[in-house]
């Protein structure tokens, strides 16, 4: 009798293993229970779509939103509506076994609604570079790509440390990020852009306030006169030159330090954020060398 015990126990473990439910805690403290690694994922967040592709989880990804524009392959996937307003029906039609939502964009009632339909929802909410890294790790664990996520995490952190070492002992440069030019909307310190500026060795001249992206005017810009002006180029915005050429008094104009950066590199908390940090660090401190 005893001789059978071991094989039976092993058999039980083998059967039970795929059935054992794994519990994860998402960014807003919700418990997400998954019975097995997800095979039909919907990403409602452009940065999560980027992370999933970077981790090699694209085979599990079945649908995205209209704002998921990177990588190219993501635009070929079925779309479940707009980033701000995904369609519940389109989500259900895809039979997802996991949906990624963001606490910035998706309202709590959308999350509850999906849950009530027995669809697990994992909410992400990265507000700093460090939280972006944690989000990458969490997504790796939830989707069964923990190793790839750790590799991405290590590479990202190593490049961050490299910049930190390069910038050690260096004077910081005052740099203003313009999210919009007309009207002039700037990034405050308590935003992910503000955090990126800190890593890139900049002082953000925007004082902290209740509005994270306050509206400024030219007077404030002339008065504060930052050394570098960074414009995140969104489509439909006027060319930076057409706005700044009228103000040759600006220090950044005189020294030709008005920089246009890829908006997604500094606004999307995903794997490409390190490119944004490196690009800004290089633009603010031209004599350092960053990787790539």
């Amino acid at each position: 009798m005893k001789t059978y015990l071991l094989p039976i126990t092993l058999l039980f473990i083998l059967i039970a293993c795929p059935l054992s439910a794994a519990t994860f805690t998402d960014a807003v403290g919700r418990q997400v229970v998954l019975n097995e690694p997800p095979r039909r994922i919907i990403s409602l967040v452009p940065s999560v779509t980027e992370i999933l592709f970077a981790l090699g989880a694209q085979e599990q990804l079945v649908a995205v939103t209209d704002a998921c524009t990177y990588p190219e392959a993501a635009t070929l996937l079925p779309q479940v509506g707009q980033y701000a307003d995904p369609s519940m029906e389109q989500i259900l039609l895809q039979h997802p076994d996991l949906v990624f939502a963001s606490a910035d964009m998706n309202r709590p009632d959308q999350v509850t609604r999906l849950e009530s339909l027995n669809i697990p929802v994992f909410v992400v909410y990265p507000n700093t570079v460090q939280e972006t890294l944690e989000t990458i790790l969490a997504i790796g664990q939830v989707t069964g790509h923990a190793t790839a996520a750790e590799e991405l995490f290590d590479d990202f952190s190593r490049r961050l440390r490299h910049i930190e070492q390069q910038l050690d002992q260096r004077a910081k440069v005052s740099a203003l990020v313009c999210v919009m030019l007309q009207p002039l909307v700037v990034a405050g310190p308590n935003t992910i852009v503000g955090d990126i500026l800190r890593y890139a060795g900049a002082i953000n001249p925007v004082p902290p306030g209740t509005n994270n992206y306050p509206t400024w005017n030219m007077e404030a810009l002339l008065r504060i006169d930052p050394e570098v002006i960074i414009v995140s180029a969104h489509p439909g915005q006027p060319a930076p030159a057409s706005v700044f050429d009228q103000w040759p008094q600006l220090q950044a104009m005189r020294e030709q330090r008005i920089i246009v950066t890829v908006a997604d590199w500094i606004h999307r908390p995903g794997p490409r954020m390190i490119l944004g940090i490196e690009a800004l660090a290089k633009a603010l401190h031209p004599d350092i060398d960053v990787e790539n």
Partner: peptide, 10 residues
Amino acid sequence: ARSVYAPAEI
């Protein structure tokens, strides 16, 4: 509007 929350504008 220009001065209460300067440098921000309401």
